[in-house]
Amino acid sequence: MRYGTLTWVPALQRPDLLAEPVRRALEDLPRAAEVRVAQIDPDLADTAAMTEAYELPLEASVNCVLVAGKRAGEERVAACAVRATTRADVNSTVRRLLDVRKASFWPTDRAVEASGMEYGGITPVGLPQEWRLLVDASVDADGPAIVGSGVRRSKLLLPGDLLAALPGAEVVEGLGLPVG
């Protein structure tokens, strides 16, 4: 299948393009047959570079950021999936949902170590089950979603509603705020 200038194949046919936690999650996902993977240049893994280089619509890309805050000494972690045309509302929506005084983006080294995924490839698919998965309502709408594959050298393509149907996912209205 072609989308943009990339050729997408069923993800489980190319486990070499998936981080281990992503592969395991896809093996357990009832709709895994709907998930595709395409190999990309790892230097183009960042959203803006990838969409331009491979002629993909920016609004199809979904960014996944890891956010944490503390309450009574307990760290609370959330993965936030928002369209690339928006940014996660960390200071209000995420902070309120985590019930913490302050929410911050996780440092890169912690995010990579805890997720088992590469920076620039972190995806909602295959994250630790104890983390909350917050998915902006716009991601749940009709249309494709391009997300990381857990590694920088590929991307996943799947229906947006499948992201919202991942185990433990919470669809949140207004999680993604317009950029600019």
Rank of each mutant, 00 (worst) to 15 (best):
E20W: 03
P21K: 04
P21V: 05
P21W: 03
R23N: 03
R24W: 05
A25N: 06
A25F: 06
L26W: 02
L26F: 03
L26R: 04
E27C: 04
D28W: 07
L29I: 05
P30E: 14
R31F: 08
R31G: 04
A32K: 10
A33Y: 12
E34I: 10
E34F: 13
E34Y: 11
V35L: 07
V35E: 08
V35D: 02
V37A: 07
A38T: 11
A38F: 07
I40H: 07
I40G: 06
D41Y: 13
D41K: 09
P42D: 02
P42C: 05
D43H: 13
D43F: 07
L44R: 10
A45R: 00
A45H: 01
A45P: 00
D46M: 04
T47F: 06
A48S: 13
A49N: 01
M50K: 00
M50F: 02
M50E: 00
T51G: 00
E52Q: 10
A53R: 12
A53K: 11
A53D: 02
Y54C: 05
E55G: 05
E55S: 13
L56A: 08
L56Q: 10
L58N: 10
E59I: 08
E59C: 06
A60E: 15
A60T: 14
A60G: 06
A60H: 15
A60N: 14
S61P: 13
S61Y: 10
V62F: 09
V62G: 08
V62R: 09
N63T: 05
N63H: 02
C64H: 07
C64W: 01
C64A: 10
C64T: 12
C64G: 03
V65N: 12
V65S: 11
L66S: 00
V67M: 00
A68Q: 10
G69N: 03
G69E: 01
G69S: 02
R71I: 01
A72G: 08
A72W: 10
A72E: 15
A72D: 15
G73P: 14
G73Q: 15
E74A: 12
E74S: 14
E75Q: 13
E75T: 13
R76P: 08
V77K: 00
